Computed example of a mutant assay.
Amino acid sequence: MSAASTPLVANYRGVICDLDGVVYRGSKEVPGAIAALNTVVAGVPVAFATNNASRPPAAVGHHLRRLGLEPAAWSVVTSAQAAAAYLAGRLSPGTPVLAVGGPGVAEGLTEAGLTPLGVTELSGTTAVEAVVQGAGQEVSWRELAEVGYLVQAGAIWVATNLDATIPTSRGQAPGNGALVGAVRTTTPAVPHVTGKPDAALFDFARSRLGTERDATIVVGDRLETDIAGARSAGLDSMFVLGGSSTLQDLAFAEKNSRPTYFAFGLCGLLQPGLRRLEQTDGIVDLTPTGALAVLEAVEPQRLLQAVITLAWDTLDRGRTLLEDQAVWTDLEHRLGVIRP
């Protein structure tokens, strides 16, 4: 099989895959995602990595199986597990740790051999050496205050992630980053963060896969977390269109947030990898105002490569690329990108 026809996934021994926006949106599958994954996991192990620390991995796994993901070499890893693994390497087994957030936080600590405590279980005689702070629908003022008190007293402070918002059925809601921000008003301390875009979650996922860096690829739809995080962890990445980040976001991405490959969905793992071209071959060009214009009708994969190549070349040379959302939205439609 020639390099030009080799599926991208054949170049790797493990995949770290984002979930929301890549595999599912809420309770529904992203079209074609599960079929592609069932083909991938038949030959290459996949670790689904999520910043969502509130749900235990088993709950996420149940969701994936309900969507149709077949039993195979796949697992779910969370930022709460990465936080617990970080502390397990620094504390004695059984050490009490304040667990703030959803049930996934306490479960991660237990799995790592530590003793999670809720705020109501604390007492004046309990020596709490660390706290893990994650998002949860029932997080209270009392819990946030206790995190501040413990951190001020010298406890190790670990935050599962710093996502400012989380998507809900009614819109954006405050995420763990907002709650961490509230605690930071009480102390000059800065938490150790284990979720994306920091490298800890990717390193933890890779330890589960048992793969080396050059044999692992990250798949995600957020440039600022999935792709930037992959780069910080020294891993190749594939950006998926149709999720949180748009074609315009990809085109204007700074160098430290650019993926190795890009695709229209998880099916991109089963096809030759799309990446920046050496030249655009006259498929697209810039108008005098800096707008991107399509000059030749080609297949969507080739057009996508030409668009991104021209955009990145333009920015890297310090030239103007027009940020007209209508133009970029029209290009997404022309490429057949499906948005919720």
Rank of each mutant, 00 (worst) to 15 (best):
L64A: 02
T78G: 10
N51Y: 14
A59L: 00
R66N: 05
A82T: 14
L64K: 04
S75V: 03
S54F: 05
A72C: 06
A58Q: 11
V60T: 13
L67P: 00
H62M: 02
A73Q: 15
N52Q: 13
A72V: 06
H63I: 01
L64I: 02
A59Y: 01
L69E: 05
W74Q: 04
R65T: 08
R55K: 15
P56F: 08
S75R: 06
A82W: 14
N51Q: 12
N51I: 12
W74M: 04
A82Q: 14
A80N: 13
A80W: 14
Q81R: 14
A59I: 02
G68N: 11
A80Y: 11
R66Y: 00
R65F: 01
H63A: 03
N52E: 07
Q81D: 12
A73N: 15
V77W: 09
S54C: 08
E70G: 03
L67T: 06
V76D: 05
S79Y: 09
A82C: 13
S54M: 04
V77I: 15
A73V: 07
T78H: 13
G61D: 06
L64Q: 04
P57C: 05
W74G: 03
L67Q: 05
L69F: 08
L67H: 04
V60A: 01
R55T: 03
G61P: 07
A82N: 14
A53F: 12
P71C: 01
A82G: 14
S79K: 11
G61I: 03
V60Q: 03
V76M: 09
A73Y: 02
A80H: 12
P71L: 02
V60Y: 00
V60K: 02
S54T: 04
N51V: 10
A72G: 08
P71H: 02
G68C: 07
A72S: 15
L64V: 02
L69K: 04
A72H: 07
A73T: 14
T78N: 12
G68E: 13
A59H: 01
R66G: 00
A73W: 06
G61R: 14
V60G: 01
V76A: 06
A72D: 09
E70A: 12
A80D: 09
R55Y: 02
A53L: 11
S54A: 15
A82L: 13
H62I: 01
P56H: 07
T78K: 13
L67M: 08
H63V: 01
T78P: 11
S79R: 09
P57S: 06
H62A: 15
V76L: 08
Q81L: 11
S79C: 09
A59S: 03
G61Q: 12
A59V: 01
P57D: 05
N52I: 11
A53R: 12
S54G: 03
A58F: 02
S79V: 10
Q81F: 09
Q81I: 13
A82Y: 14
A73H: 15
P71G: 00
L67I: 03
S79N: 10
L67G: 04
N51W: 14
A73G: 06
A82I: 13
P56D: 06
A59M: 01
W74K: 03
P56Y: 08
E70T: 08
L67C: 03
G61A: 15
R65Y: 00
E70H: 03
T78A: 10
S54L: 02
P56I: 05
P57T: 06
V77F: 09
A59Q: 00
G68I: 10
R66K: 09
R55Q: 09
N51P: 13
H63Q: 11
H63R: 15
N52H: 15
